[in-house]
């Protein structure tokens, strides 16, 4: 398998010393495919939840961004029901100076700071705008139900 040295180095560091609340390990059969868990940030509706994600490094990585998707259901205006994430650095703001670690930290930060003005899940975003309290309560319910 052709695996750039950079990917091996990043993997090694992720395994040896992962950021708090985040784990990432490549699958045995494909070192470009990672199983990720992210803990919901404190004082957010996702607190206490552990969210599973999958991360894939395309062949052009690091020139192109990794592909990341939530596997756990999340009630969040920037994450749709297929788990796709609306995050600038995963699209046009990607830079090869970023890495897996920074991407996962950004995703954790996104959980702590939902942005209903740039929605991916329109109904959730509308809910958030109409009645933020109720939306947050719903997000907490989802966290309890799916992310334990």
């Amino acid at each position: 398998m052709s695996l750039p040295k950079r990917i091996l180095k990043e993997t090694e560091r992720l395994l040896a010393d992962s950021p708090p609340g985040i784990t990432a390990a490549p699958k045995d059969d494909n070192l470009r495919h990672f199983d990720v868990t992210v803990a919901g940030p404190d004082s957010s509706p996702y607190q206490g939840g552990v969210f599973k994600l999958e991360l894939f490094l395309p062949e052009e990585y690091p020139m192109n961004p990794p592909k990341v998707r939530f596997l756990t259901k999340v009630y969040h205006p920037n994450i749709d029901k297929l788990g796709r994430i609306c995050l600038d650095i995963l699209k046009d703001k990607w830079s090869p100076a970023l890495q897996i670690r920074t991407v996962l930290l950004s995703i954790q930060a996104l959980l702590g700071a939902p942005n209903p003005d740039d929605p991916l899940a329109n109904d959730v975003a509308q809910h958030w705008k109409d009645d933020e309290k109720d939306a947050i309560a719903e997000a907490k319910r989802w966290t309890q139900q799916y992310a334990q």
Partner: peptide, 14 residues
């Protein structure tokens, strides 16, 4: 998957 994976072993930092 752990640090002892053969592919990772080859990447041990020079």
């Amino acid at each position: 998957m752990d640090l002892n994976h053969p592919l990772l072993a080859s990447a041990v930092d020079l």
